[in-house]
Each structure stands twice: as C-alpha cells, then as structure tokens.
Design a protein around this nucleic acid. Structure first.
Lengths: 181, 181
DNA sequence: CCCGATACTGACTGTCTAATCAGTCAGTAA
DNA sequence: TTACTGACTGATTAGACAGTCAGTATCGGG
C-alpha cells in the first residue's frame, strides 16, 4: 500500500503496475490480487490509507492545545505546500482521479471536508474568544484552504513560478485579511 | 484534436485510446499516427490547441476596453469555475499530467502564466487609475487566481461541497479584500 | 502430530493496444 | 501518358498487463 502510493507518486494513478508494486515489495504479483482482488481496489485502499494518516496527523495537531491562533497556524502550516510536497502529488492525482472514479472521489472528499471543518471550527473558536475578527468563519476557512490548494498546484506542478517564501508570505497576508487586525 | 480533448475529458489523459479518437472522427487509427506520430504527441498538441483557444479568448476580453474593473471582472468571470466547468476538467488533468510530463507542463504553465500576468496588469492599471487600493498587485493577483484554482477543484472534483453561488460570493469578498477598502 | 486455514507463488491466458507497413486512390504537374 | 505526392486505410504484429488457477509452504490450535 505504501508501495502503491510510491508508484502513484512516480507514475500517476493510471501508471501503477501490479508487477512494479510487487517487485518493490519483493513478492509475487499474485499476492496483490490475493489481498486486494483488483488493482483498482489496491489504489483506492492506498489512498484511503494516506487519507487516514493525514487525518491522524490533523487530530494530533488539534489535540495539542494552546492558543487558537497557534493551533490554526499549525494546521495551516501542515496543510501548506511549502513542505511535504510529496503529499501534494498524491492529492493532485486524486483530484484528477476523482473526475472519473467515484470511490476515489469520496475518499478524497472525506479527507478534504475534515480539514476544512477543522479550520472552520478553529476560526469560529478564535472569533468566540475574541482572538479573531471575522464575519463568516466558514467562508474565511474555505477561502484560505482553497487558496492553499491553488498555491499547492503552483508549487508542485509548475517550475519555480512561485517560491516557498512567497507562498508563506501570501498565506500570512491572506490570514491577516481574513482574520482581522 | 478536439476529439482527443473529448477523450481526455471522458477518460483522462491516460485513458485516451487511438482507436476511440479515430472512431469518433470516423477515420482509421493509422491516420492518427500518420499525422501525429505518437499518441503522446496528439495529446500534447490537443492541450496546446486548448491553451491557444483560451489565450485567444483572454486577448479578446482584454481588448474590449472599458473601465479596468469591468475588464478585471470579465477576466475573472471567465476564469471562474462557475461556468464552463468542462474546461476545468482539462486543466485539472493537465496539472496531474504535468507532474510527470515536462512537455505538457510547459504548455499548461505558459497558459497559466499569461492569465496571471493579465490579472497582475489589470490590477496594476487599476491601482494607477486610483480605482483599486492594493499594495502589492502581483501578490493580490496570485492570491485571487490561486483561490479560483482551489475553488475550481471543489466545484469539479467534489460533490456539491460548494455551490456556484458561494463560489461567486467568496470571490467577490476576496476581491473587495484585495482591491479596495 | 495432524489438519485446516491462511499466506503465498509460478506459470499461464486472454485481451487490449500502440505502432508499422504495404498498398490504394485522387489529384496535379510536365 | 507518365511520374510523383500526400492523404488515407486494412491487416497485422509484438509487447504489455490484469487477472486466474492449481498448487506449495507455513503455522496455530486441538
């Protein structure tokens, strides 16, 4: 499954070959079909696994406590494309895959929704605590996360159009805009 | 080429079959290889064609004259994922394809850069004319377009997570934030 | 120690498909 | 008429690959 994710990163979803996955694990191709039935299953399970790992990380961050602003910062930093670009490869693949594969779509969508809910909740909490100044937490959260998705595309699928520094700076500015002085 | 784009929309880049393209044009598969040499060439040419069409449309909008705000609105409306979602299918495919195919990447990147340059220029012009109030036009333009890319993913690769109305409203708010008091 | 289950494999197979190639045909120039 | 070109095709091929199946090895519980 980890091996399948590696393959997705290297060749794309449609480029995953049972033989390659098997080779990288030093097992027979038959074993893959023994466990997953079809290649498509393997890929969906692999994405599900990746999504669960990300969600576990999210819960971890949320549980850390501290000021709302600190937690929000931590969540957005993890989500931001400045580091861990490898993870973004996967999710951009998943977007394209979601255009056709409904199962993949629901896996990706679930992860996505959780992140956004977490951001919405944090912003709302911050507003309640008087830390933030924001009329519509939901809208603000979705704008911020959509911005990050867009920046991720620039970072991962483009050659140096945007630097990591610009990326963080633009996020900073957007946060100031959205969350008030 | 139009037929190839249809195939990309329906099956994804990796799902394009010479036989299918040929059938939809009612010609032999041989003809495709006669003209394009390889399937990959066909696909890159098809994307190039789509990109040129979009750029032509951009030039058209830019040439229309009128107030800066009106032109900017027209550009962003065309770029926005609320209508013409079909076009977005193509470019999300292109993002994923760009992760591995350098030729495709350069085609997509070129188009992308032009759009962003157009937005940067319009904002700068608006600032010059006193219509907008914006410290860093480049940053504002990239944030707005990245936001649109992110919203496009939501509209196209997700089931009803975001409505078209929310999408336009959030864009409105972002524009107000970025361009004016 | 046996037995059933579970994990795993190697050898196949049927299918799909990009690419090739030899050749047809309509047009055109000399 | 002849020579030649460019567009196009039908038939074919060679390779790739998902999935199957008939087994073998391993192991834990009775």
């Amino acid at each position: 499954m980890l091996a399948a994710l590696d393959q997705v990163r290297q060749r794309g979803i449609a480029g995953v070959r049972a033989a390659e996955v098997a080779k990288s694990l030093d097992v027979s191709t038959s074993l893959i079909f023994y466990h997953f039935g079809t290649l498509e299953n393997l890929i969906v399970e692999a994405f599900r696994h990746a999504a669960e790992a990300d969600l576990a990380r999210l819960r971890e961050i949320m549980a850390e406590g501290g000021a709302v602003a600190k937690r929000l910062r931590a969540v957005l930093d993890w989500y931001a494309p400045t580091n861990k670009a490898d993870g973004w490869l996967l999710w951009i693949e998943a977007w394209a895959g979601s255009l056709r594969d409904t199962e993949l779509r629901s896996v990706a969508q679930r992860l996505d929704l959780r992140w956004r809910e977490a951001v919405v909740a944090l912003i709302a909490e911050g507003v309640g605590a008087g830390e933030f100044n924001c009329v519509d937490p939901r809208a603000a959260a979705w704008r911020l996360t959509a911005l990050l998705d867009g920046l991720a595309v620039q970072m991962v699928a483009r050659d140096g159009a945007v630097t990591a520094a610009e990326c963080t700076e633009w996020l900073e500015q957007a946060m100031r805009h959205e969350l008030g002085r």
